[in-house]
Design a protein around this nucleic acid. Structure first.
Lengths: 157, 157
DNA sequence: TTTACTGCAAATATTTTGCAATATC
DNA sequence: GATATTGCAAAATATTTGCAGTAAA
């Protein structure tokens, strides 16, 4: 995970807390560090487990509190994939995901053109800050399984 | 709401039910009709209320059952916006939304180019079926409020 | 010292599931 | 008649909230 991104996130958090009369609690910084240690998509359950492993005890409520703050500060983004909430570190190049609707696997798509295209869209009476693009379909692994299944069915007939 | 789309959706549903040994229950068709009567984004709560108004009693479990089937058949799509689930009829031109992160207002973006651009993206080892693009930002109404607030604060100092 | 934050438990909200009754095929 | 589906209630999940104790400022 990018170290600069973590430093930047810590600064964003500190700045916000100081400017808004809120407190720099160890919990908030520990949760932030764990978020960055997760690497990629994670659920709040996974985050909680990781913190337990690291022997840092925090309540669920505090995790929600921190994550909601991070969402607001755009330090993390949230994805809802097949009725489950996933989070990940927000960076400038991770808003484009391909999702297999069969196995649910998520992959980041690297395509500079799409970022440029969307960033340059001029929307009326709207000030764009960012975007999320989800491309749905079937990954090659699942496609292969489906094809094999179909072949078997035909053979039976 | 487009009548052809409803007819098409009814046919899709009927075809699926017949081909898979499942039953054409009045509930499923009533829920389908109500989905099309909703117009735009709706929550399952709103859908349930609408059906009650229309004097068609269905249990919550049946609504979930039907909606999950419709999702699978791509008759409806689901959006998760600020921790709430919204649904809408799936059509070829409703996958691009702008969302105000302040007031939560959602608007569909009409931009033919974006559909073409994304549809033509060639993804490795992945068979694309569709996409959802969410553009986040601040709508002009909220922007105006923020500006006014900032002006007041400066005046105070 | 003040009061924002945490942990805990309870409350609320959302979605799924088990099961008996019902209705489709 | 066989069994998929419904309604209901309970269970499982996910998230928020109230409150007393704690700790940051």
């Amino acid at each position: 995970m990018d170290k600069n991104l973590l430093t930047k996130a810590r600064n964003t958090l500190t700045k916000y807390l100081e400017e808004n009369g809120r407190r720099k609690t160890p919990e908030r910084y520990a949760i932030l560090d764990t978020v960055f240690a997760m690497g990629g998509h994670f659920t709040l359950d996974m985050l909680g487990q990781k913190m337990e492993q690291d022997n840092f005890r925090v309540s669920r409520a505090t995790i929600y509190n921190a994550i909601n703050l991070f969402l607001k500060l755009r330090i993390v983004i949230k994805h809802n994939i097949q009725n489950e909430s996933f989070y990940e570190v927000y960076s400038d190049d991770n808003h484009c995901h391909q999702i297999c609707t069969v196995c649910g696997k998520v992959k980041e798509v690297q395509n500079a053109d799409i970022y440029e295209f969307i960033s340059n869209m001029r929307l009326k009476r709207f000030h764009q800050r960012g975007f999320n693009l989800y491309i749905y379909g079937v990954c090659s692994t699942c496609q292969a399984k489906i094809t094999r299944k179909k072949t078997r069915e035909k053979t039976k007939k």
